[in-house]
Structure formats: C-alpha cells, structure tokens
Write a protein that binds this DNA or RNA. Sequence first.
DNA 1: TTAATTTCGGTAAAACAGTATCGATTGGAT
DNA 2: ATCCAATCGATACTGTTTTACCGAAATTAA
Lengths: 211, 211
Amino acid sequence: MKYVSKNQLQRYPVYHKLLLNHLKNGEEFISSRVIAAELGYSEEQVRKDLQAITTYPGTPKRGRNLNELVLSLEEFLGYNDMSQAILIGVGHLGAALLNYKLFPQMGLKIIEAFDNDPKKVGLTINNIEVKDYSSIKEFIKSSGVKIAILCIPGENLQVIVDEIVKMGIVGIWNFAPGVINVPDRITVQNVDLASSFAVLTHNMKQKIKAK
Amino acid sequence: MKYVSKNQLQRYPVYHKLLLNHLKNGEEFISSRVIAAELGYSEEQVRKDLQAITTYPGTPKRGRNLNELVLSLEEFLGYNDMSQAILIGVGHLGAALLNYKLFPQMGLKIIEAFDNDPKKVGLTINNIEVKDYSSIKEFIKSSGVKIAILCIPGENLQVIVDEIVKMGIVGIWNFAPGVINVPDRITVQNVDLASSFAVLTHNMKQKIKAK
DNA sequence: TTAATTTCGGTAAAACAGTATCGATTGGAT
DNA sequence: ATCCAATCGATACTGTTTTACCGAAATTAA
C-alpha cells in the first residue's frame, strides 16, 4: 500500500459512494475516465488514487472490475471492521448525529451517548441510550471504546478532552467549535463549520470577480 | 490581497476564533509565535498566512495589534456583510443547523427554511419559519437569497439542486451525502462526514503502526 | 487475423504549499 | 544611551501533490 496524502484520503469515500451507485445499476466494469468525468476530477488523478489502494490492475479498454474496486475501497477505509464510538453532548447536533442513518455504511457504530443534563439522561435515541456523564469513565474502561464524538459547547471542551484522553480515548471526532490540545498519540479530526462556510463564500466571491 | 490557497483559507476561521478569545482577555498585541504555539502550526506559516490578508505590518518585539488583526480577518472572511441563506430539509440535521448558535459570528443568517413534510411546515425553529417547499421559488425570487444549505436525503438531491440553481441560487452548502453536478458559475461546498471520518480512522491506524 | 482504439501503469515535469533562513527593526533592559 | 533579544517581512529552499506524457497491453470490430 502506497503512501496516501490527506486530500487523496478524503477522496476515497467519494469514490466509494459513487461506485456503490454504479454497482446498484448492475454494471460490472468502470474506467477511470468515467469516474473522473462524473466527479469532476482529472483522469490521471483518479487513476493514481485507485492505483494506490488496489492490488489487481485494471484492464485496458474495459477499466476496472467494479465489485473488486468497491471491496478494495472498503478494505482500505476500514469499513469492514466496524469502528465503535461514544458520543458526548446530546444537544441538537449530537441528537442529529445519533439519528444519522449512514454511519453504519461508513463503518461507524455509536454504542452509547453521554450528557450531564438530567433531561437528556435516560433517553434512547435511535436505539442508543443516553447515560449520565458521570458514568463515562466506567463505560470507556469496560467497553474499551477508542473513539469519542464531541458535540459539546465550547466552554468545557478542553476539560472534557483531557478527561476522556486520560480514560483511554485515542480518537476524537470534534464537532465542537474551537481548538483542542492533545498528546501526540491522540488523533483529532475537527468538523469545522466555520472553515467550511468560509471556503464557500470565498469561492463565490472569486467567481464573481472572475466575471 | 495575495492569492490564498484552500488549506490556508480554512485556517483563517481558526485564527479568528483563537484571537477572539485573546481579545476577550483584554490583550492588545499578539505575536505569530504565540499563535503558532497555541494552534500547533509553524511560526512561519502563521506569519505567512497573516501577511497575506493584512495591510498593516506587525511590529518586532510586540507582534501584531490584536484588534486590527481580528478586523482584517473579519474583513477578509466577509463576516461584516452578513450572508443570508435558506435551509432546505428540516430533518434532524437540518433542525440542528437551524438551532446552531454560532452562525451569526460566522457571518451567516438563515432567513427561511423549507421542507415538503406537512408535519414540519408551519414550525418556527429558532425564529426561522419552515415553509412548504412548493413556495421556495417565489421566496428565492423575491428575497434574492443566493445561498442554500442542503440537508435533504440523497435520493432527490440532484433534482432539487437543478431546481434551485434555476431559481437563482449560486452557492450551495451541501450537508447531504453524495456528489452533485452544477454549472461552473455555481459554487458548491460539501460537508462530507464520510471523508472526515475516514481521515480520523486512517490517522489513528497510522499512529498505531508508527509505534 | 489484424488493425484501431481505449485504457492502463509508470515516470517525468510542473505547480503548489510549507519550511527554513536572514537581515532589519523595534522595545525593553542595563 | 547603548545593547540585547524578540519579532518582523522577504526570499530562498525543500518537499509534496497534481498534472502531463508515453509506451504497452487488451478488447473490439473489420
């Protein structure tokens, strides 16, 4: 398996989703050119991306075996061995994520949720129980869960992060706004709405200028 | 104003958020070195990023004027002239976004929401009314709104996109999974949870390997 | 069976982004 | 008043990511 850059990595789930649609249509082969055209990528980039994670080559004039390609993507993305995670903070956004239907397809299963609001504790959302935050330590220890999804307000963010890291969490998917500091061995992935929106508005401005 | 790369662009809201905190503490100056340390960036990168969007230089031994820096960032990011947007699809995620408290700080105001579910239509969430999707055309025309936030299931995604583009929407913030095709003049920014989660798990694996 | 065409994989070149270096300038300490 | 340390901006360098190119291989069609 070759080295994969961050941008490249983010493209793989996009390929996966597209290819699933083609697979549904009963197609058997697909060429890099077709994929590139549908996604708006360059042909060379698609070829390089796919070469990096597949073991079997494609065949000239036909392209790649669609089924094999999907399997390679799922293997690479780890969609086969489901990742278990806990969710912390059952506010509007946290509840929406508990209800998010596509996580299983992405190899993610939320096994428990935590909040410190008594009104939330005891609820069951999409078959996931909401427990009191005070019980989180025991749960992390006993379940061995490694990933936490953070949906808490910004104020206590770093405090909570420090706590759960000490309890054994090594991967943090952070939906809360704000920067968090962790030791090197911990992985953090931020979902930063402000950054995403900034890209949108900036690109809109650029297009207006270009006219 | 110099050219700004996409990665660079995504860092500016992060700077902005950090600097607001420092401003709250009553600080007057801040050096690139301090910013770099707090965000885990390199000192040079911070300096280069800030140089690209500011007009006034920093002063040696003190750093940059914090207030001026924040103003430059807000100016660059367009936080001053508030962007108006509509939201389409008031499901769990859509409702969570309607309740999201930080949009005003990001220069975003959602002025109306649309859904085709009669149970949703007529609700008012966080002072935003949910209207029937059939009335969207009139609203876009009369309000002149340019940005749409999409939170609809994947099935009708492209159909809706084609419709709203025809009605005058030019910027789409897409929270729905799946690739959408638009004319060149339209800007799309995807919030792709699958890609984000893939980066998290991949980085976690890399760290385990590196041990 | 042969020719034409498509697509492949690998390599080379170009573009881009990030890092390091360096002289200049300023503020504060002595 | 002078010196020292910190920070700046600019530029040069390095590395990474993307794009372009090219010969080879395989399928389809004549």
